[in-house]
């Protein structure tokens, strides 16, 4: 059973590494958006610092949103998704493998590059670990919740807008708490509350989202 999980994970990583141009898209988007902001507003160091949490979190969220389609679209189009659903292994486990692969390929690179962007935005050095931690807890949730949305819209042609409408309301709490944690940390206060909230949401979505995704995929296939 665990083999099915790891084999699917490896397959998805391998496929992504062979189509590298697609792999870099979310990362380039993230870097571009964050680095364009200081050019568009009059960049006093204080203003940049003030805006940094919001800009970084919104850009990360949109970067993940734009990459969500990749989760199931290709598998749906070429019929591989049917084969996954006909697997004797629990579909929830296979969904989890695909979501983990998606996070490793989109969320994790965003987390890793965020310290550099924080420096762009004049964030004080002691706040940078908070940015990394909040993204580390938040981006997996974005992938997990996004999977539910994609599994519902994968059969719809040009379902991008629909996907955003389904997923964005669920993303908002993550955005608020993630950006707020950085804000509060910059003021020198404790961010325990925000981090516990993000961790709790991660635990919740880790246990519930794959089940919801599996059910949604079965509904999509039954059409």
């Amino acid at each position: 059973m665990f083999n099915a999980f790891s084999h699917l994970l490896i397959r998805d990583l391998r496929l992504a590494l062979r189509a590298r141009h697609e792999l870099a898209n979310p990362l380039i988007f993230f870097v571009l958006v964050v680095s364009l902001f200081p050019l568009a507003v009059t960049p006093t160091p204080e203003l940049l610092q003030e805006m940094a949490p919001g800009v970084i979190w919104v850009s990360a969220l949109l970067a993940v949103l734009l990459s969500l389609d990749r989760l199931f679209k290709q598998d749906y189009d070429d019929g591989s998704l049917d084969q996954l659903m006909l697997s004797p292994n629990p579909l929830v486990l296979l969904v989890l493998a695909k979501v983990l692969a998606h996070w490793l390929l989109t969320g994790l690179p965003l987390v890793l590059i965020s310290p550099m962007l924080a420096v762009f935005m004049n964030v004080p050095a002691d706040t940078i670990p908070i940015i990394v931690l909040s993204l580390l807890l938040g981006t997996p949730v974005l992938s997990l919740i996004g999977a539910i949305g994609v599994s519902l819209t994968v059969a719809v042609n040009r379902g991008g807008v629909l996907l955003s409408l389904i997923v964005l309301p669920l993303y908002i709490p993550i955005l608020i708490f993630g950006a707020n944690a950085i804000d509060v940390a910059a003021d020198g206060l404790s961010v325990k509350g925000q981090m516990y909230f993000l961790a709790a949401v991660l635990a919740l979505s880790l246990s519930l989202a794959p089940v919801a995704t599996a059910v949604a995929l079965r509904i999509t296939a039954s059409r």
């Binding site: 099915a4 391998r14 019929g79 049917d82 296979l94």
Partner: peptide, 24 residues
């Protein structure tokens, strides 16, 4: 089914293995 279930970026052997993997 009538869809190919084949990934163009994988080799023939990898495609067969990944199909077999779903069946453990």
């Amino acid at each position: 089914g009538h869809l190919p279930c084949i990934k163009g970026d994988l080799t023939t052997e990898e495609n067969i293995r990944s199909l077999l993997d779903t069946r453990s």
